[in-house]
């Protein structure tokens, strides 16, 4: 056994998640936000893989696989939207896109 403690793996996952979250909250550039989102998703996948490794179960990796497909679809649509936004508003500032405020 290689002996990586599970709680440390999960802590790393949490740390990556929080870093990604900070990126989403702080950056105003849409592309940077999307990239930070990738980090968040990846951290979540790491948590699943750690858990799967703990139990010696394939489910963890399958969840990672599904997150992967989700990330792929999300990036596809998200980048398409980013392109549209840029074409229309000539900016990537997420805060200036607030026409739907109440």
């Amino acid at each position: 056994m290689n002996g990586i403690p599970m709680e440390q793996g999960l802590l790393l996952s949490a740390m990556l998640f929080v870093l990604g979250l900070i990126g989403v909250l702080v950056r105003r550039n849409l592309i940077m936000m999307l990239m930070s989102l990738e980090v968040v998703l990846n951290a979540t996948g790491l948590a699943f893989v750690v858990a799967g490794s703990r139990w010696g179960d394939a489910d963890g990796q399958i969840m990672f696989l599904l997150i992967l497909t989700l990330a792929a679809a999300e990036v596809g649509v998200g980048l398409g939207l980013t392109l549209q936004v840029f074409r229309r508003f000539h900016t990537l500032d997420a805060d200036s896109l607030n026409e739907m405020k109440g």
């Binding site: 709680e7 802590l11 740390m15």
Partner: peptide, 26 residues
């Protein structure tokens, strides 16, 4: 936002560390 995220991290750390220890590697 960073403080908010750190709060979240602190909470998660507490949850994880109180969950006990276990080996991985299968």
């Amino acid at each position: 936002p960073s403080l908010l995220a750190l709060l979240l991290f602190g909470e998660m750390a507490v949850v994880i560390l109180f969950g006990g220890s276990a080996e991985t590697g299968s």
